[in-house]
């Protein structure tokens, strides 16, 4: 089956960061399970999720680390930044304080990831427009100034969730295509899927790229 967990040619690693309660775990859950978790407990340390997506005809497996926003886990969560190909920084459009902390999240992301890491800013809870505390324009300006991609999204309705994760993957894939991201670099956060026997030589790389494992299940 094409949606099976074995059919892909690249692995991209993501992290999701931002203040506690902004909806990081809900966004991940919405993306992987297409469901909203109304009573999601605070994340302890880190959580993990995975999904296979398609970008420009290529199947890509996303390995996504969802980190705890609580300060007391900062030491642990910081160790998950290294080697991420994509970083999603989340704030809550109904809580200004979560927006005000963005520069500190951004600094962390810049310092702890590699220069090619795609950083995507998400203003979550767009369904709560009536309680909005941060305007779209203001956040958009912040994103532009810092060279970030930006959308407002809702883990509850699912609006723009898919788009944010896919857009990030697309940018990563583009930098592989144009050669600016070196697949073999230790911290690129990108890997080719292992070949079926795990022992194929580099010369067969090209052939294998377009021909994902022909698993019968």
């Amino acid at each position: 089956m094409s949606s099976g967990p074995y059919n892909y040619s690249y692995i991209f690693k993501y992290i999701i960061i931002g203040d506690m309660g902004v909806g990081k775990s809900c966004l991940l859950h919405q993306f992987t399970e297409k469901k909203f978790m109304a009573d999601c407990p605070h994340t302890i340390g880190v959580e993990f999720g995975t999904r296979i997506i398609e970008v420009s005809g290529q199947k890509i497996k996303l390995q996504i680390w969802d980190t705890a926003g609580q300060e007391r886990f900062r030491a642990v969560t910081r160790s998950y930044y290294r080697g991420a190909a994509g970083a999603l920084i989340i704030y809550d459009i109904t809580r200004r304080s979560t927006y005000n902390h963005l520069s500190s999240w951004l600094t962390d992301a810049r310092n702890l990831t590699n220069p090619n890491t795609v950083i995507f800013l998400i203003g979550n809870k767009s369904d709560l427009d009536a309680q909005r505390d941060v305007t779209y324009d203001e956040a958009k300006k912040f994103a532009d100034e810092n060279g970030l991609k930006f959308v407002e999204a809702s883990a509850k309705t699912g609006e723009n969730v898919e788009e944010a994760f896919l857009e990030t993957a697309k940018k990563i894939y583009e930098s592989i295509q144009d050669g600016s991201l070196d697949l073999n670099a230790a911290e690129s956060g990108v890997q080719k899927k292992p070949t079926a026997n795990g022992a194929r030589t580099l010369s067969s790389e090209n052939a294998e790229g377009r021909n994902p494992s022909s698993c019968s299940c």
């Binding site: 340390g45 993990f48 390995q63 642990v76 290294r82 080697g83 890997q191």
Partner: peptide, 27 residues
């Protein structure tokens, strides 16, 4: 390992990234 504040990549070999284990366990 999930509770430790130690980055995964301490060598150039991305195959030994802990993420692969957690990914596998998830599935």
């Amino acid at each position: 390992r999930m509770k430790m504040a130690v980055p995964f990549l301490d060598s150039t070999d991305k195959r030994n990234d802990f993420t692969h284990i957690v990914d596998f366990c998830t599935n």
